[in-house]
Amino acid sequence: MAEWVQNLMDSMGYVGILLLMILENVFPPIPSELIMPSAGFAASRGDLNIVMVIVVGTAGSVLGTLPLYYLGRVFGEDKLVKWADKYGKWLTLSGKDIKKADDWFDQHGTKAVLFGRLVPGIRSLLSLPAGMSEMPLPKFLIYSAIGSAIWASILAGAGYLLGENYDRVEQYVGPAGYVVLGMLAVAAVVWFVRRKKAQS
């Protein structure tokens, strides 16, 4: 994958970075932890400009959030509430739970979008609840852009500084993402157990 990413950037330059970052949000198996450090390495060689790498990477990341955001808008809270009331008992999920989750996102959505963009594994998925809770598009884009710019700067900067060893960035960022995902999984299990106890 690393060689394919590098070849695409070598042949398409900034357009390649833009396309890869859009795809990374729609198809998470293409990781930004590989794309942006590779672009940073290309900038360290003088092939690209580091500022343009960050700007284009951020733009691609933000554009890539839109498909899932609009998917959330299309289905919306009402349809999900109806679905949960009809089928959600198998997941111990009710329409009331969907409403509570939506209310939480209404209160904390900006922070979730901003900081969630820095977390590998869930960064692209946050667009779905943002759309579902009907977060205004301008607000969603602004917070996505800020979070994405920070993330792109960290990764591209690391690739720029590490040079030929840019592929090590993924080794350090990857485990951090697994820790966060593990914490989320534990929180989900705790919620599930408490809900079961409350129902019994």
Rank of each mutant, 00 (worst) to 15 (best):
I54V: 15
F140Y: 13
M52L: 14
V119F: 01
F75E: 02
L141V: 08
A59F: 12
K79D: 07
D97K: 05
W90D: 14
G95D: 04
E134H: 12
D97G: 02
P129D: 02
Y87I: 06
V62G: 08
S153H: 06
V62F: 07
A130I: 02
S153Y: 05
A149E: 06
I150K: 09
S153Q: 11
L68M: 15
K111T: 05
P129K: 01
E134K: 14
K89G: 09
D85G: 07
K96Y: 06
G76S: 09
M52P: 02
Q107C: 09
T65L: 12
G57S: 11
W90K: 15
A112D: 00
P129R: 02
G131Q: 05
E77N: 11
K139S: 05
L141Y: 00
K100P: 01
P138E: 05
K111S: 13
G109K: 09
G88S: 12
A84L: 11
I146M: 04
G60A: 05
A112K: 01
S153L: 04
L125R: 01
F115G: 00
A130R: 04
L91E: 04
W83E: 05
L63N: 02
F105T: 06
I150L: 14
K100E: 13
V81Q: 10
I54H: 05
V62Y: 07
V81P: 06
I54Y: 06
I146R: 03
K96T: 13
T110E: 01
R123W: 01
S133N: 00
V81G: 04
A149V: 03
T65K: 12
V53C: 13
D106M: 10
I142K: 08
R123I: 09
D106V: 05
R117C: 05
W90N: 15
T65S: 13
V62N: 04
M132P: 00
H108A: 11
P120V: 09
L126H: 00
A152W: 01
L71C: 12
G72Q: 07
A84E: 09
A101S: 15
V119T: 11
G60T: 10
E77T: 14
V56Y: 03
S61G: 13
I142T: 02
I122M: 12
I54N: 04
L66W: 08
A112E: 00
S148Y: 08
E77L: 13
L114G: 05
F105H: 06
W83N: 07
Y70A: 08
T58S: 10
T110D: 00
K82H: 14
K111L: 13
G57E: 03
I142Y: 04
W83T: 04
F140S: 00
K82I: 09
W151S: 09
A130L: 10
R117V: 01
R123N: 12
W90H: 15
R123S: 07
T65N: 13
K139M: 01
G88M: 12
D103F: 05
W83P: 06
L118H: 06
Q107V: 11
K96P: 01
G109F: 12
P120F: 13
S148A: 15
Y87M: 09
G88N: 09
